Simulated scan of single mutants.
Amino acid sequence: MPMPTEEGVSRLVAGLVAGRGFDLEGVEVSTAAGQTRVRVIVDSDETADLDSIAELSSEVSARLDEADDEFGGVRYLLEVTTPGVDRPLTADRHWRRARGRKVRVRLRPGVTPPEPGLPTSFEARAGALDGDRIALVLGGKRAPHLVTVGLGDIERAVVEVEFASPNARELELTGGVASGRPPAGADAAEHTATTVDASDSTEGIME
């Protein structure tokens, strides 16, 4: 009995995801206790509401159920969801959507930090993306100031959860939180939970 593959699922659902105005951020297929789980991860420039996720989930489920030439009789649990905040920032669109948020950046080995005394792994607030360089606000609330780093010099970067609001100067330097994204700070906690955990699960049979 053939098992679904991440590549196969991606190929089947990419058009549906794009048609709904989402980016396909990844597909994960896992099996535990005899249950196959297919997880489709999507994102967009605007906040993904539960209704949109549910509608997309129904369309994805129907498409997978029709894929008898790819999979045969495999019961699966489908989950369509948005990325968590710990999703690595690997594409230009990730950085655009992270504007205004606190990020943890790790530079590649041998890369000189953007200012003296700064370690190769540091916290900053993401600013505007300009070509292949990202503006970062260093100094926190006490002495916020801008530096820029080449995307090619970054080995890994992730958005960090915040429970305190940044000051006005920090956000001013970043250009503000990206449109349609959750606000940075304490009042983002509940909003973020409903946004990044927004998901819809359905069961079906690929046959």
Rank of each mutant, 00 (worst) to 15 (best):
M1E: 03
M3E: 09
P4T: 10
P4A: 10
T5S: 15
E7I: 07
G8K: 10
V9W: 03
V9D: 05
L12W: 09
G15S: 12
L16N: 11
G21M: 12
L24W: 13
L24F: 13
G26Y: 14
S30H: 05
T31G: 09
T31D: 07
T31H: 04
A32I: 08
A33K: 14
G34V: 10
G34Q: 10
R37T: 15
R37W: 12
I41M: 14
D43V: 13
T47D: 07
A48F: 03
D49P: 07
D49N: 10
L50W: 03
D51N: 10
I53G: 08
I53S: 07
I53H: 09
E55K: 15
S58Q: 08
S58W: 04
E59K: 13
E59L: 15
V60N: 03
V60Y: 11
S61T: 13
R63D: 13
L64E: 11
D68E: 15
G73K: 08
V74A: 14
V74D: 11
R75P: 13
Y76A: 14
V80W: 14
T82Y: 01
T82K: 03
P83F: 01
P83I: 02
D86P: 05
R87I: 05
T90S: 06
T90Q: 08
A91S: 05
R93D: 00
R96N: 05
R97K: 13
R97M: 09
A98C: 00
G100F: 00
R101K: 15
K102V: 05
V103S: 00
V105I: 13
R108F: 03
R108H: 04
P109R: 11
G110D: 15
G110C: 13
V111H: 10
P113L: 12
P113C: 06
P116G: 08
P116R: 08
P119V: 02
F122M: 04
F122C: 02
G127T: 04
D130P: 01
G131K: 06
D132H: 04
R133M: 04
A135H: 08
L136I: 04
V137Q: 00
V137D: 01
K141M: 03
H145L: 01
L151D: 01
G152K: 05
G152R: 00
I154A: 04
A157N: 02
E162A: 02
A168N: 03
E170R: 01
E170C: 06
E172Y: 06
S179Y: 05
G180Y: 10
G180F: 09
R181M: 05
P182A: 14
P183M: 10
P183G: 11
G185C: 09
G185H: 15
D187C: 12
A188E: 12
A188C: 03
E190L: 15
E190W: 13
H191G: 00
H191I: 14
H191Q: 11
T192K: 02
T192N: 00
D197K: 13
A198H: 13
D200A: 14
D200F: 15
